[in-house]
């Protein structure tokens, strides 16, 4: 059953993301609207986007506390994903081992950062005002994923060999028996839920930031005439 769900979610996730990108990219930018000052070259734009994606530089200008909380959460998430790659890769490459210990710390910082974001959303009247149930729910979901993950590490360690065999089986399209661990199944289900929600929600920001019109356009309206088919 879990196997079927996992495959279904994977398909929906990939389809959802792809179709969203198709929708985004098929909608043109009729006018030059970079938020200025803006770079004049493509490499300048790459640097600008890198600054947004890696350092959250606009957010840094906007709100230092939120920047810290948000950045710690995202970096923790990345470290955890890297740590998890040992479950998907066989043989395990050398570099993955680097993330094993730090990935555990990241589990804690992730939960702390999420708790901060949750409390902040709840207590700052301005942010609370614009928050919906789903905004809180997705923070809780991420927290639960983190908590079930750490539970497996520190409370009830499931059989890792079984789990890795199961996951590698999923990836190679020859599913093995489901591991006998409630925590693991819960952890995986919650993660699948996250994947399922991703392409239909604000979580799409992770992809959208790379093509944001105001950040990716060069400031060259004069140098190069910008025209799109409908706006000639």
């Amino acid at each position: 059953m879990l196997t079927v769900i996992a495959y279904a979610v994977a398909v929906i996730f990939v389809w959802g993301i792809l179709s969203r990108f198709i929708i985004w990219l098929s909608s043109p930018n009729p006018l030059k609207i970079p938020t200025t000052p803006a770079p004049k070259t493509f490499s300048g734009v790459v640097a600008r986007i890198a600054g947004e994606v890696v350092l959250f530089q606009s957010l840094f200008k906007a709100d230092k506390k939120l920047w810290l909380g948000g950045w710690i959460f995202h970096v923790s998430f990345l470290l955890i994903v890297l740590r998890h790659s040992r479950y998907f890769l066989y043989p395990v490459p050398e570099w993955v081992m680097v993330f094993q210990t730090i990935g555990i710390y990241a589990g804690f910082t992730l939960i702390l950062a999420l708790a901060f974001l949750f409390i902040r959303r709840l207590t700052i009247d301005r942010v609370n005002y614009v928050s919906s149930f789903m905004d809180y729910a997705v923070l809780l979901l991420l927290m639960l994923i983190g908590i079930t993950g750490l539970t497996m590490k520190f409370i009830g360690r499931p059989n890792l060999i079984d789990i890795k065999a199961y996951i590698l089986g999923l990836f190679s399209l020859s599913p093995e028996a489901m591991p006998d661990s409630t925590v693991f199944i819960l952890h995986l289900l919650l993660f699948l839920l996250l994947l399922l929600y991703f392409p239909f929600s604000k979580l799409l920001h992770a992809g959208g930031v790379f093509i944001s019109t105001t950040r990716t356009q060069t400031d060259t309206p004069v140098e190069k005439r910008h025209i799109t088919p409908w706006a000639k």
């Binding site: 969203r20 929708i23 985004w24 990219l25 909608s27 043109p28 930018n29 009729p30 609207i33 606009s58 957010l59 906007a62 709100d63 939120l66 948000g70 902040r120 959303r121 700052i124 301005r126 942010v127 614009v130 928050s131 919906s132 905004d135 604000k202 979580l203 799409l204 920001h205 992809g207 959208g208 930031v209 093509i211 944001s212 019109t213 105001t214 409908w230 706006a231």
Partner: peptide
């Protein structure tokens, strides 16, 4: 007709910045 609009509708996380 406007990617900026389509993207804005989709990607706001309501961070509050």
């Amino acid at each position: 007709k406007y990617r900026s609009l389509q993207l804005s509708m989709d990607i706001c996380v309501k961070c509050g910045a």
